[in-house]
Nucleic acid binder design. Structure first.
Length: 419
RNA sequence: GCCCCCAUCGACUAGCGGUCCAGGUCGCGGCCCUUUCAAGGCCGUCGCACGGGUUCGAAUCCCGUUGGGGGCACCA
């Protein structure tokens, strides 16, 4: 089967995560069948166009690793073709002039129906279809005319789009029939909603691809998560590589009911992907992300710190909270030191001339110090952790101290003990 | 108002008439491990919206109700 699909965003802003899911289904379908995936910008409504949007959309797709075939096309470039097609419909008696606009004559008896690849048969009574404007008074074609015409001209075989287009489909089908072209297969995939079942919007959290990137999600994790919103290969598998998604994807298994976006599950999955990275890949992702976010932290030190936090993070943006103490001076909250004075002193003494100064020897020295005071590890190490890292939550204490170095460690222990 | 779509644990879903007193994953709760936090291991909690049919048999098929969503522009 030859397959050519298209994604047709309008350049009105950042790529919305719900749109990305539809994008992904198109992409998976095309790649699964070894077909083509086109990118088309629907920019006939120039008044709503945002200047940077076209670039941002492409940048987001590149980041997600969703590649398209051929060059990007613009609906506006086919304005004349649309006009000509409309005039032909007028000549054929299938459309008529109305107040300077050209209006399409919809059938008013019977039904318009199609076999939707995800929903099965869908029917619309024709008397509910109004004669729609093909070309506006100012000569610009409308979406419901330009879009199906472009599908025809581009030889699109499958139109895979979100369910809010269902009611446009009978209109577009009638237009395509009127120009005597072959109908594509339509597949209406379910919408993605927010946690309250309502349309996903700002108040639910991140919605733009750029925001997910900023939050420190890995593209592979996001893609895996999105693929599972409205599609499942079986009831068991959740973690799938891109190749596996491509191999297993089919429209038949796309659900017809809407899904809710669950940030908690995304976080879990992102953690799974981060832990699965090789040590240097993880460090690389971290360094890249920190750079994008404007941190000027030493890359070598980040590389050394990475292994200490790899299994603790669900998102890259959690890194600074864990590791800030290695890159900047931090101060301990006296309340958190909680009577740890004796242990702080003992730790200072134990580390002062310890050789070698390694995680292993540090651990041995601190455990001995704790024993000397008759303290349980839990009680003993917490004040040290707070003094050294400035936080009750940190990477492994001994590794952290080794990385921080003797000088800094002693300085922080002394300062905390003085409080 | 009219048209269309949808309906299994809190969430994502498996289930396409018997193998389901409904399985997996996230979340949640508990326990274990443990220098904190995570991670990991084990156990557990929670669901077929409702009412009628069809059938020997229904989560699965049909009808209705209710509930949710989408659309009805010279927006896309």
């Amino acid at each position: 089967m030859f397959v050519r699909v298209r994604m047709a965003p309008s350049p009105t802003g950042f790529l919305h995560i719900g749109g990305v899911r539809t994008f992904l289904f198109n992409w998976l379908f095309a790649r699964h069948h070894g077909g083509e995936f086109r990118l088309r910008i629907e920019n006939t409504d120039t008044s709503r166009e945002v200047a940077e949007a076209v670039d941002q959309i492409q940048e987001s797709l590149r980041w997600l690793g969703l590649d398209w075939d051929g060059s990007v096309t613009f609906q506006l470039d086919r304005l004349d073709d649309c006009r000509r097609a409309a005039e032909q419909l007028v000549a054929d008696g299938k459309a008529y002039l109305d107040d300077g606009a050209i209006r399409f004559r919809m059938p008013n008896e019977g039904v318009t129906a199609w076999d939707d690849a995800v929903r099965g048969r869908v029917e619309f009574p024709n008397d509910s279809l109004e004669d729609l404007v093909l070309v506006r008074g100012d000569g610009r074609p409308t979406y419901n005319f330009a879009s199906p015409m472009e599908d025809v001209w581009d030889g699109i075989t499958h139109v895979i789009r979100a369910e809010d287009h269902i009611s446009n489909t009978p209109k577009q089908i009638n237009i395509i029939r009127a120009v005597g072209a072959e109908l594509p297969v339509y597949a209406h995939v379910p919408n993605v909603n927010g946690q309250d079942g309502k349309k996903l919007s700002k108040r639910h959290g991140a919605t733009g691809v750029d925001e997910f990137r900023k939050s420190g999600y890995l593209p592979d994790a996001l893609v895996n998560f999105l693929a599972l919103l409205g599609w499942a290969p079986d009831g068991e598998t959740t973690i799938m590589s891109r190749d596996e998604l491509v191999e297993r994807f089919s429209l038949e298994r796309v659900s017809s009911s809407p899904a809710q976006f669950d940030y908690a599950k995304l976080d879990w999955m992102n953690g799974v992907y981060m832990r699965a990275l090789a040590e240097d890949e993880f460090a690389h992702a971290l360094i890249l992300w920190l750079g994008e976010q404007g941190y000027e932290w030493d890359a070598e030190l980040v590389r050394k710190t990475a292994p200490l936090v790899q299994e603790k993070l669900a998102r890259l943006d959690e890194f600074p909270a864990y590791a800030r103490f290695l890159f900047e001076d931090v101060e301990a909250d006296p309340a958190d030191l909680d009577g740890g004075g004796p242990m702080l002193a003992a730790a200072t003494a134990a580390l002062e001339s310890l050789e070698p100064f390694t995680a292993e020897s540090i651990e041995a020295a601190l455990r001995a110090a704790a024993d000397g005071l008759g303290l349980k590890p839990r009680q003993a190490f917490q004040p040290v952790r707070v003094a050294v890292t400035g936080s009750k939550i940190s990477p492994g204490l001994f590794e952290s101290i080794e990385l921080l170095g003797r000088t800094q460690t002693l300085a922080r222990l002394t300062r905390a003990a003085a409080v």
